[in-house]
């Protein structure tokens, strides 16, 4: 029951929802990767994830780990290896909270 409730709170909370789907002006590093000047956090995550899949970047021995290529490491703090667990967090770093 708990995950369902948690989920509800996110999609029904307009602020959190906006945080996820609002278009944001991108910093230069991300702009090169995405190829657009604006994208939402959700869209960005999808791009990164599909990039990983398209280029077979998951480690063949441990699928939970991604071996970054040059382009990817550029936007993920320059790391050469990233765990899938932290992928949303890393993407989120590019979308800082706006000061009120």
């Amino acid at each position: 029951m708990l995950p369902q409730l948690a989920k509800k709170s996110i999609t029904e909370n307009p602020k959190k929802l906006a945080n996820l789907i609002d278009l944001v002006n991108l910093p230069l590093t991300l702009r090169d990767f995405v190829g657009q000047s604006q994208i939402s956090r959700l869209g960005c995550f999808m791009r990164v994830w599909s990039y990983i899949k398209a280029n077979n970047l998951q480690d063949p021995n441990n699928k939970n780990v991604v071996n970054c290529d040059k382009q990817l490491s550029k936007i993920l703090l320059g790391k050469s290896q990233v765990e899938l667990v932290e992928l949303p967090t890393l993407v989120k770093l590019h979308f800082p909270k706006e000061p009120k």
Binding site: P3, A6, K7, I10, T11, L20, I21, L42, M46, T89
Partner: peptide, 12 residues
Amino acid sequence: DVAAYSTLESTL
């Protein structure tokens, strides 16, 4: 997409 992602994100 939003529902699926937000669940994934919070779970991760």
